[in-house]
Each structure stands twice: as structure tokens, then as C-alpha cells.
Design a protein around this nucleic acid. Structure first.
Length: 480
RNA sequence: CGAGGUGUAGCGCAGUUUGGUAGCGCGUUUGGUUCGGGACCAAAAGGUCGCAGGUUCAAAUCCUGUCACCUCGACCA
């Protein structure tokens, strides 16, 4: 009775199987990652959510640096005339551009787009910066926010303004551009799998789904716990599609004027949505140690009793010195039980309890967020034990997600099979390559083509849709 | 963007049918007792009912518009 009443006060998270979408919203709103703002479709990142983005930024940026990229900063406004230069590009983005039409009290001569993406402004600058083969390649990246006037928005998954990085590179040859495009996709795949513990399918987009203005688009596609696909990152090879209208040319060693070959690639704050929907459970977030703002939270139990507070401080300092992101929760106005639940909700991988009973035995009680296992570990050398546990949790979260993904991916050989499979997962199927078949599949099942894996070993020879000869292996799924 | 639903204190809700100037629980603040899975006692602060108009002597309640969120669809790299 008393217990039952208590439950009423506890913030409720809708069970995933009851309503996954509501579960997502519950988790997002209760974990202090973001808040809604007075600006339509735009969120505020609160410290906890912002820290995750910072860690993504830091770790991904290091990978960009290692592969020879440099960061730049470009204007957030793009004159309309620039946006209009590449036909497919305008067509793709025009419906969702926000415009600035006035400066101070004066109407502008030419309206400016709040950047929905920066290809056109990068290209304009590249045409000034590239003259000779000696200037190439240019491998630039910027971290910024962009705006797309989306009709319906959801925190992290689709917001009007979102934060991202966009890489833009210029190369002398088609081969180099293609290599860059693939390299960056590989980095995204590695980052998703190793840092975010999110397994992905990497492959090439169909013409229908490729970026507005690209020759080829590659993507990494993650699978959420409801079996739906979430595009986690894209990498585009533009060929000379932008170089031609923007006149980005270089004088070759042979003295010939040649068009440059370009790429662009990006990931966004949507990755945080992917983290939530890949790893979250009934108690809230489960953050992979590598991007958890706090990897370990230390909870003093009965802090006023002999030596507890001091010992917690010592452990906290030792963990910090060992390079572990630790938080000492020494609030005295909430009970330990409250803190247990709160930090579980926020997904901290490890909880370290230190109380009088622990001190008697020279130990700490350590609880894992992924398995809820409780361990008694010696205080001596605790940091090494915790580091090992963090590695284990990182692996374990990946393993669980990977098993889920494989269990929810199936080869299908008929339209009916495909229809059923995409109700809760990915279908791998043969496809003839016709847009008409993609359209029909979308129409009748709600699934879209996700990408064509690089391993194109056929699983049949006829199209899952039209039954004609087919030589493409394609993943289909319903997508966010 | 279409259909349906919701919006009242930080959070969860009652009050709206039958207009009369807002209530409950949690949380918050202060003091005290507690502290190993969402503690307890006492006192106190906190809202004008998403926002903007309108009807009325009087609007949380009726009308119009608008915004946000949720569900299902459409759209979308």
C-alpha cells in the first residue's frame, strides 16, 4: 500500500513495447538532455545533452584531423543567387529554407537563406581558393548549426535547427574524390560502432534517395529498437556537379584547365537520438562509456558518518587522475534511493556506492547500468577495475545492439515477405534498380530503400517487387 | 500538411457539461530527524488557467484565431 502510493510520485516512463514513440519522448524529456524553446521546432541543448554532443565533436574531430582535414567557419547566410546555381540542389532544399529579407530596418536587395547546408557557399569560396593542382586537395570541415523548416519535428531526430559537422573537400581527380567519400563513410561507421556502440549497415543510396546534387551518396544506417532505420551519417561524391556551375577549376601539371571533383559528408545531433533509441531501456538512457558525460557516479551513503565523505573525495580525485569522467553526487537533500534511480535514468554506466559498511571492509559497492549487476570491489586500485568494467560495458552494449540488429534483419524473396519483414526490421532483397519499384514498395509497405551494401553477393536473381531480372542487393526498411 | 487528442503552480492532475474570479498530490524553501533501492515531521512560498482576440456585469469554463506537444497518415537526404 505504502509502496504503491510511492510509485505515483515517480516519473513514469512508458514501456517500449506499449508505445515506442512515447517512450522516446518520455526519456528525452526526463533526462535533462534538452528542452523545448519558444522557437518552433528548435530545441535548447541542456548541459547534459550538450556534453554528449561535445564528446561526439571531440572524438570525431580527432578522427578528421588524423585523416588530414582542417576546420573552417563559414557564414550562416547564403545569398539566394548562390543557392540557385545547382539545379537539383535548389529543388531539393528550396521547400525547407528559411529566408532573411531585411537588415535592420532596410529590405535587402537580395534575400538570404539561413544555411540548410553549405555546399554553395563552400563552392563559391573554393572557386577563389583553387587555382593550381598544387592547391589540391582541400579537405575542410566545419562544426555549426543549420536550419531546415521541417513540417514536423521531434527532439534530436528532426529539428528545424540542428547542430552538425559538414565536411567539404576538393580533389583533382574522380578517383581521389571517390576515395575520400568512402574513407569518410568508413570513419562514420567506425565512430558509430566503436564510440557510440551502434552497429550500422554501410552502403550506397539509390538515385531516388541520394543527396540533392550528388553523383553518389553513401550512408550508414542504424536500427532502432522498434526495428526502424535511422540514417546516422552520409557521405556524398559530387563529381563535378558543383564544380561546373561554380567554376571550380585548376591548372593541371600538363597546363590544362580542369574541373575539380568534390565531396561532402556530415553527421548531426541526430546521433543522440540514435543513442537513445539503440541503447535505452525501461529505466531510461544507457550511455556507452566512451560518450557518457559521466562514466562513473560516486554516491556517499550516510555521508555524515565516520570517514565516508573523505573517502568519497579521495576516490573521486583518484578517478579523475586516472582519466575517468567521474561525478561525486554529494547532495544531502535526496536519499540514496532517489539518486540510484536518477542516475540510472540518465544512463551513467557505473555507480559506485561508498558507505560505512563498505569502509569496514575496504571496498566499494559497484553497480553496472547495463546488467544491474552489483559488485563489491576493493577500494585499493579501484580505478583500474572500473576502467576494465567500462570497457566491458562498451563491448556489451555493442553486442546487445548487434544481436538485435541481426535478429531483425532478414533476406526476403517475395513482396509479401518484404511487407512482413519491414514491420519490425530490415529486409535484404534483390532489386532491379528501377525507381518504379522503390516507389511501389514505399507506397504499399511504407518502407524505403536504405542502401546497397558493398558486399553485393546476390541472394537471388529477380526483383522482389517486379520479378524482372535483378542484380542489386538492397536493404529496405521503414525509416525515421 | 490532413484526421484525432491534449494544454490549469516546476511535474502529474481535478475543476469546463450547468460562467461568479482556482484546488489536490509530488516537488521547492526553512528548521529538525534520517541516509545501503525513489525517507519523515512542522511551517512557508508558488498559478490567474498555452497565447491573442471576442461575447458577458462577470470567462479556466462560451466563441474565433493561433502556438506547442502526443497518436495515425502525407512529406522529407
Amino acid at each position: 500500500m505504502a509502496k504503491e502510493k510511492k510509485q505515483e510520485f515517480v516519473q513514469h516512463i512508458t514501456p517500449r513495447e506499449e508505445n515506442f514513440s512515447q517512450w522516446y519522448t518520455d526519456v528525452v524529456t526526463q533526462t535533462d538532455l534538452m528542452d523545448y524553446t519558444p522557437v518552433r521546432g528548435c530545441m535548447a541543448l541542456k548541459p547534459y545533452g550538450n556534453r554528449i554532443w561535445e564528446l561526439i565533436h571531440e572524438q570525431l574531430d580527432a578522427m578528421f584531423q588524423e585523416t588530414g582535414h582542417e576546420n573552417v567557419s563559414m557564414p550562416m547566410l547564403i545569398p539566394e543567387s548562390l543557392l540557385l546555381k545547382e539545379a537539383d540542389h535548389v529543388e531539393g532544399f528550396a521547400p525547407e529554407v528559411a529566408w532573411v529579407t531585411q537588415g535592420g530596418t532596410e529590405p535587402l536587395q537580395e534575400r538570404m537563406a539561413v544555411r540548410p547546408t553549405s555546399e554553395t557557399i563552400f563552392c563559391t569560396m573554393f572557386s577563389k581558393w583553387v587555382q593550381s593542382w598544387r592547391d589540391l586537395p582541400l579537405k575542410y570541415n566545419q562544426w555549426c548549426s543549420v536550419m531546415r523548416w521541417e513540417k514536423t519535428t521531434r527532439p534530436f531526430l528532426r529539428t528545424a535547427e540542428f547542430w552538425w559537422q559538414e565536411g567539404h573537400t576538393v580533389h583533382a581527380t574522380a578517383e581521389e574524390a571517390e576515395e575520400e567519400t568512402r574513407t569518410m563513410l568508413g570513419i562514420y561507421q567506425r565512430f558509430c560502432e566503436e564510440n557510440l556502440a551502434i552497429p550500422v549497415y554501410a552502403g550506397q543510396k539509390s538515385d531516388k534517395e541520394k543527396f540533392a546534387g550528388a553523383r553518389a551518396t553513401y550512408s550508414v544506417e542504424a536500427m532502432m529498437q522498434d526495428g526502424k532505420a535511422l540514417q546516422a551519417g552520409t557521405s556524398h561524391n559530387f563529381g563535378t556537379n558543383f564544380a561546373e556551375p561554380f567554376e571550380i577549376r585548376y591548372l593541371s601539371k600538363e597546363g590544362k584547365l580542369e574541373y575539380c571533383h568534390e565531396t561532402s559528408w556530415g553527421v548531426s545531433t541526430r546521433l543522440i537520438g540514435a543513442l537513445i533509441m539503440t541503447h535505452g531501456d525501461e529505466r531510461g538512457l544507457r550511455l556507452p562509456p566512451k560518450i557518457a558525460p559521466y562514466q562513473v557516479v560516486i554516491l556517499p551513503i550516510a555521508a555524515h558518518k565516520g570517514g565516508v565523505e573523505e573517502r568519497c573525495q579521495e576516490v573521486y580525485q583518484a578517478l579523475r587522475k586516472a582519466g575517468i569522467r567521474a561525478k561525486l553526487d554529494d547532495r544531502d537533500n535526496v536519499s540514496p534511493g532517489w539518486k540510484f534511480n536518477e542516475w540510472e535514468l540518465k544512463g551513467v554506466p557505473l555507480r559506485v556506492e561508498i558507505g560505512p559498511k563498505d569502509l569496514e571492509k575496504g571496498q566499494a559497492t559497484v553497480a553496472r547500468r547495463d546488467t544491474f549487476e552489483k559488485l563489491a570491489l576493493p577500494l585499493e586500485g579501484l580505478e583500474d577495475a572500473l576502467r576494465a568494467l567500462l570497457d566491458e560495458i562498451q563491448q556489451n552494449l555493442y553486442r546487445i545492439a548487434d544481436e538485435f540488429r541481426l535478429a531483425h534483419t532478414k533476406d526476403v524473396h517475395s513482396f509479401e515477405e518484404l511487407r512482413q519483414q519491414v514491420n519490425g526490421g530490415y529486409a535484404r532483397a534483390m532489386w532491379c534498380g528501377d525507381r518504379a519499384c522503390e516507389d511501389r514498395i514505399k507506397e504499399e509497405t511504407g518502407a524505403t530503400s536504405r542502401n546497397m551494401p558493398f558486399d553485393q553477393t546476390p541472394i537471388g536473381d529477380t526483383c522482389v517487387c517486379c520479378g524482372k531480372k535483378a542484380d542489386k542487393v538492397m536493404y529496405f526498411a521503414k525509416a525515421y
